[in-house]
């Protein structure tokens, strides 16, 4: 891949981008499809420009953790497949995949977007556990935000399965109408600092030449549930203030697209 490491920061300093976009402009189209696979209990496919990710939810019945005996749980995992970019290799997840899954986990979990108590079937014995897997299909940049939308859309698409109270076995083939108790719609938006200026929805090239980035997970009431600062250079409090403003505004924009897809 060619990365114009000189041109991008120079342009960004003047408020311009290689592809002619505004600094705070997302690529189009932004598309959300749900229920794209029959084997998952909930699923989605999200496209932002060239970037495409799929998210799928599998449910299982397990014994609750001892410290939360009346609650279910979630687990988020991201697979950055070598299919989606020449930069990814086969094998166990690398740092980028781990970071995406951890930050998105916090975005959902800390926002208390899922009522875990409603996932409990028998206190101390049985509760629904939600495993969300994100799989990249084509990484054209900004997997972070695309994955966040995919997670939310897949959770919203999830319905519970029937289970046998005797054997505690899940009958994965019998769908119920019961939806996952999703109470909020938290989304993560990542703001990048390049050439001293801020931009969103970076292309793959832009992701290779930023100074710092801040991922902000927030819900529809603009309550922040997760933050992650990345990149090699420090940022000021003033930067944080501006970056959070941008992230909240863009999250509202993305949430509209999500709401429209429901």
């Amino acid at each position: 891949m060619i990365v114009n490491t000189n041109a991008i920061p120079k342009l960004a300093a003047k408020g311009m981008r290689l592809d002619g976009r505004e600094m705070l402009e997302f690529r189009g189209p932004i598309e959300i499809e749900t229920g794209i696979t029959d084997t998952a209990e909930g699923s989605s496919k999200v496209r932002i420009g060239d970037t495409v990710v799929i998210a799928g939810v599998k449910l299982s019945l397990e014994k609750p953790y001892p410290d939360t005996p009346d609650q279910g749980g979630i687990m988020i995992n991201a697979e950055l497949t070598p299919m989606s970019s020449s930069e990814y290799e086969t094998g166990p997840p690398r740092m980028k995949a781990i970071e995406i899954s951890r930050v998105l986990d916090r975005t959902i979990r800390e926002a208390k977007a899922i009522d875990f108590k409603k996932l409990c079937v028998v206190k101390n014995e049985l509760a629904w556990f939600v495993a969300i897997d994100i799989v990249s299909i084509n990484d054209g940049g900004n997997l972070f935000d695309a994955a966040s939308m995919a997670v939310l859309a897949a959770l919203n698409n999830t319905t519970l399965r029937k289970y046998d109270p005797e054997t505690k076995a899940v009958d994965y083939k019998s769908k119920t109408d019961e939806k996952l108790p999703l109470t909020k719609s938290p989304l993560a938006v990542t703001v990048y600092k390049v050439g001293g200026n801020f931009l969103v929805d970076p292309s793959s090239e832009e992701e290779h030449c930023y100074q710092a980035r801040l991922t902000v997970g927030s819900d529809e009431k603009q309550v922040i549930s997760a933050l992650q600062k990345g990149g090699e250079q420090p940022i000021t409090i003033d930067d944080v203030s501006k970056m959070v403003d941008i992230a909240l505004e863009k999250a509202a924009m993305l949430r509209k697209a999500y709401d429209a897809s429901k």
Binding site: T37, A40, K58, E79, G91, A131, D133, V135
Partner: peptide
């Protein structure tokens, strides 16, 4: 060739990622 099923692509429980 690299054949891989996504973790949610099987009938039944989640497939743990990995070779």
């Amino acid at each position: 060739c690299h054949y891989n099923m996504m973790p949610f692509s099987g009938t039944g429980t989640r497939i743990r990622p990995g070779t």
